[in-house]
Simulated scan of single mutants.
Amino acid sequence: MLINTPICDFGRPAPDFTLATPDGQTHSRDSLMGEKGLLIAFICNHCPYVIAIIDRLATDLQALEAQGIGTACIMSNDWQSYPADSPKNMTRFAQAHGLTAPYLVDADQSVARAYDAVCTPDFFGFDAKGGLQYRGRIDDAGMKDPAARKPELLEVMTAVATSGKGPKVQHPSMGCSLKWR
């Protein structure tokens, strides 16, 4: 089911969490926060929207990390019903696409609920103080050929890192609905 993200609730604080990668490394909101901000991406392994953007996302996340913005991906889907999203497959998916940001398991789906995540991919960009500044798409290419894309997520988070403010006009991310239990 195709879902669009809601409008950005500017300044909303980043909910706290502690989650682990499939291999057991734990990360919290505070440990992930970079000196210039934090980007949280709710993704999964099987969604065609995520599959279409994952290589671009991995590259953009590395660029953001180099600028002092912390990054993490969170998988909140019910992997019992969608085995492609299992923790074992999360590790394979991350390795296959060069994803270096922590890919975290939200087993009880509480973090997705706290963030009001609705789809995969769903992006939350926070300033250095933890206030929400971006809730939009990765770029204008979507599932099309990304050769001439405008990397909106990268550009916006770069601006947030320097100014602390996100743009008033944001285009929603589009993807598959989260798979709730």
Rank of each mutant, 00 (worst) to 15 (best):
L2Q: 13
N4T: 11
P6R: 10
I7N: 15
F10T: 12
G11L: 06
P13N: 01
D16F: 02
D16I: 05
P22W: 00
P22H: 01
D23V: 15
G24C: 08
G24M: 10
T26E: 14
R29F: 06
R29D: 01
D30I: 01
D30R: 10
G34V: 09
G34D: 09
G34I: 10
K36Q: 13
K36E: 14
G37P: 02
I43R: 01
H46A: 03
P48T: 04
Y49V: 06
Y49S: 10
I51F: 02
I54Q: 13
I54D: 07
D60G: 11
L61N: 02
Q62R: 14
A63T: 12
A66M: 08
G70N: 06
G70Q: 10
T71K: 04
I74L: 02
I74A: 05
D78I: 07
Q80C: 13
Y82T: 14
D85E: 09
D85C: 07
P87Q: 02
P87N: 05
N89S: 09
F93N: 02
Q95F: 09
A96H: 07
H97N: 14
L99C: 04
T100L: 12
Y103P: 01
Y103S: 05
Y103W: 09
L104E: 07
V105K: 12
V111N: 02
A112F: 03
A112R: 00
R113L: 11
R113A: 13
A114I: 01
A114P: 06
A114G: 07
A114Q: 05
P121C: 05
G125I: 01
G130L: 13
G131Y: 03
Y134I: 08
R135H: 11
R135A: 04
I138T: 08
I138P: 00
D140H: 01
A141C: 01
G142L: 06
G142W: 00
D145A: 04
A147E: 14
A147D: 12
A147I: 14
A148V: 10
A148K: 14
K150F: 15
L153P: 10
L154M: 05
E155T: 11
T158S: 14
V160L: 11
V160Y: 07
T162K: 13
G164W: 04
G164N: 06
G166Q: 09
P167G: 05
K168F: 08
V169W: 06
M174Q: 13
G175W: 03
C176Q: 08
S177W: 05
S177E: 11
S177V: 05
K179S: 03
W180E: 07
R181S: 15
R181Q: 13
R181T: 12
